[in-house]
């Protein structure tokens, strides 16, 4: 015997052999599949988390972009408004000026026409007077009675005025 506690090297190896087999079975049939499943799930959750994070970051970015855009648009609107206001005022002034100029033109034309009309009437009246005078003068000259002629002239003049 010799070996204390009845240690048997062959049996130790048999135990080792047994444990190695057990290790192999446990590793391939239980440990590895369960570990793989857990790792896969962990990876899935991580991917989901990463995706969500990415999406959130993207959303934040887009939001910031939109906010910036909105701020820009507001600014643009206000400049456009002020520009439009300025333009409007300019147009209005221009139209008022135009209207004033037009009105002045119309008045001028009316005045001119009035004057022309007036001149015409006077010219016609003068012509008529000349005619009357001529006629009267002819009559007087023909009758040679000055007083009578004068009266007749007055009468004819009166008659002309009445007729008119």
């Amino acid at each position: 015997m010799g070996v204390p506690l009845n240690i048997d090297w062959q049996q130790i190896l048999l135990h080792l052999f047994n444990f190695i087999i057990l290790f192999g079975i446990l590793y391939f049939f239980l440990y590895k599949p369960v570990k793989d499943f857990m790792e896969k799930r962990e990876a899935d959750y991580k991917a989901q988390h990463d995706d969500a994070k990415e999406a959130l970051e993207e959303a934040e970015k887009i939001k910031a972009e939109y906010e910036e855009k909105i701020a820009g648009a507001e600014e643009e609107i206000s400049t456009m408004k002020s520009e439009a206001g300025a333009k409007n005022a300019e147009e209005r002034t221009r139209m008022i000026e135009q209207a004033k100029a037009d009105a002045a033109g119309i008045v001028e034309a009316a005045k001119k026409r009035g004057e022309m009309e007036h001149d015409k009437i006077i010219a016609e009246a003068q012509k008529e007077i000349a005619d009357i005078v001529t006629t009267a003068t002819e009559k007087i000259v023909l009758s040679a009675d000055v007083k009578k002629s004068y009266d007749e002239f007055l009468k004819s003049a009166e008659g002309n005025v009445k007729n008119e």
Binding site: N18, F19, I25
Partner: peptide
């Protein structure tokens, strides 16, 4: 040793 083999058999079957 017999116990060890029995344990391996039980655990292996379970796995």
């Amino acid at each position: 040793l017999i116990s060890a083999y029995c344990v391996t058999a039980i655990v292996g079957l379970f796995a």
